[in-house]
Amino acid sequence: MKNYLKLVNFEFNRVAKLFVVLLGITFVVQMLGVFFEAKKYLDMANQQIYEEMVPKAQFLQMYGQMSFMEVVRSAWFLAPIALCVAGVAFYIFLIWYRDWVGKNTFIYRLLMLPTTRLNIFYAKITTILVMTFGLVAFQIILLPIEKWIFNGMIPIEFRNDMGLIEVVTSMPELSLIIPNSLLQLVLYYGAGLLAVSILFTGILLERSFKWKGIFAGLLYGAIAVVVFISPLLLQDFVLDGFFYPIELFMIEIVMGLILLVASIWLSGFLLKKKITV
């Protein structure tokens, strides 16, 4: 356990730079987004009202009020999120390959630590989780600040005030990363964890068997997906709606857990018996 925590700390420090860069980009770009989106609206309002002499009421009727939603829907806001998602996805692979590739032979050290090799797996997956939660938490902190700046820029009569929760829930992209119930959180992130563990297993298959391993990894991924959705397929095509939705839901959860355990077991086996430096 102690070694696991030390490894997590170590792995996180290794990704800290990338993490901070992602946070920085998100912060800067989203702030610029708030500013430019608000300014765009203000410029338009100024032009219409003071140059074209459109009465305020008529302007509001023509163009509507500005809502924070428009900022959130803009590329300014979503691009950094996409970048962070891509960054994490990329790092899922890099977190393993960086120990092998090039002149770096750090994998020797990791595999020679006097601790179970599964701790390496756990530490790396935890790092990915921590990184993801960190980015999400940062976004959650950032949102009210952005809203506050937005409110400061747009006078109240031009503003369609929406609650932040309303904003998040009305955006499917956002509600995926910021779930609005505990159950959703567990489900979304549980599914994410499962996906990462399957990817890790695939990577370890590749690291153990090289070219054949890539094939085995893809096969393992495909099997995992089929196993995971098989209850749904059975329900629809064979059993003709035999299960209640809640039953099906429970079955899916059990399937997910089985796949998670299988991936961890297989990864443990590969790390112990098949991995090669």
Partner: peptide, 17 residues
């Protein structure tokens, strides 16, 4: 795993970052 407290290996490349 505990054998790594009893035996060590120094490869021809450095095993640190």
């Amino acid at each position: 795993e505990k054998t790594f407290e009893k035996i060590t290996f120094i490869p021809d490349a450095i095993t640190m970052l």
